[in-house]
Amino acid sequence: MIKKLILSLFVIAFFTVSSFSQNRTLPSVKVKNLKGSLVNIQTIENDGNPIVISFWATWCKPCKKELNTIAEVYEDWQEETGVKLVAISIDDSRSASKVKPYVNSSGWEYEIYLDPNRDLSRSLGVSTVPHTFLLDGKGNIVWEHRGYIEGDEEELLEQIEHISK
């Protein structure tokens, strides 16, 4: 009897765990666009193509290195894989006003959002920048990477190519 009970408890535990969604998706959290409007991050989309979400800040050297490096090849990436890059700045009020001037002067073609209160970065477990997520066409987070060292963009491209096939 007790054995049966224990067994069934295990079965419950197993199914409970396995029925938690295996696919991580973006939480329902609002970020600001450069026009000052709040946008729910779940509403970003890319016609079923992959989306890269990159957390960065104007004071973060490796972040800028990563996004500047990708900017040079972004058009090729878009053509090949249909990918879209969404750069989310975690700059607070000290540097948030520099985001748009920096982005424009650098000529980035990314979709830019601000997360000054870190609501989104906190709910995705982003503790340091840069931190990059890759979403497949259905919005599942399929890959993530902390930090940036030169050459990391090639691994990111491999991952994008892998899911955009």
């Binding site: 069934s8 419950i12 197993f14 199914f15 029925s19 938690f20 969604s21 998706t25 982003v126």
Partner: peptide, 22 residues
């Protein structure tokens, strides 16, 4: 107890758990 796993299964999404550690 025996039925509940199947009940749980039929609710195909029980939400997500995620987090970070340092």
């Amino acid at each position: 107890i025996f039925i509940s796993p199947y009940l749980l299964l039929s609710q195909n999404n029980l939400g997500q758990i995620n987090g970070n550690f340092e």
